[in-house]
């Protein structure tokens, strides 16, 4: 019977001394790959999907416009609004806004300003084309519709 009673002499514990290092590596990964959000977005954002995406080259040359139904509908109504930085603006204010954004850039780079529009799926083309017209007037003619990557079959 004695041969059945033999016990393995190996240790049962998993060494956990490397755990902090693993967690630190994860931590550094997230610290490097993420950007702190600059503005609070006050409009609903369900970004449409597309497959033919292109990347923005230089983040410093990009200004963002958020378009969608306000999150606080009781305060702002349910009509889609345009958010620039932290405030809601009207299409007629866009020329002024573009001028302000251009002033933030170096003089040589002003014509390279790109507008990235984050538009909710359900916003109608009417509003968007009004914005486009104002952007043309303001001579900010590089436009990017932010979309998500469609999952390809």
């Amino acid at each position: 019977m004695s041969k059945f009673k033999k016990k393995a002499n190996t240790k049962q514990e998993i060494p956990t001394s490397a755990l902090p290092d693993i967690i630190f590596m994860l931590l550094f990964f997230f610290m490097v790959t993420t950007v702190l959000r600059e503005v609070t977005i006050n409009v609903k954002q369900r970004i449409p999907e597309a497959s033919q995406l292109r990347k923005l080259e230089r983040k410093s040359l990009v200004s963002y416009l958020y378009v969608g139904e306000p999150k606080k509908t009781d305060q702002w109504g349910s009509e889609p609004r345009i958010q620039a930085n932290d405030v809601f603006i009207e299409p007629s204010d866009i020329v002024l806004w573009v001028t302000q954004e251009k002033d933030k850039l170096d003089e040589v780079e002003r014509d390279q300003l790109t507008i990235a529009m984050k538009v909710d799926e359900d916003v109608k083309r009417g509003l968007i084309s009004d914005i486009e017209l104002q952007l043309r007037k303001a001579n900010a003619r590089k436009l990017l519709y932010t979309t998500l990557q469609e999952v390809e079959e």
């Binding site: 993420t34 033919q52 292109r54 952007l135 043309r136 900010a140 590089k142």
Partner: peptide
């Protein structure tokens, strides 16, 4: 960091606009 950050999503469809009408 997981909670406070968003992975930047700066990709989309580029279109050049025509000049001021």
């Amino acid at each position: 960091f997981l909670v406070t950050t968003t992975i930047a999503n700066d990709r989309g469809l580029f279109i050049p606009l025509p000049p001021d009408p």
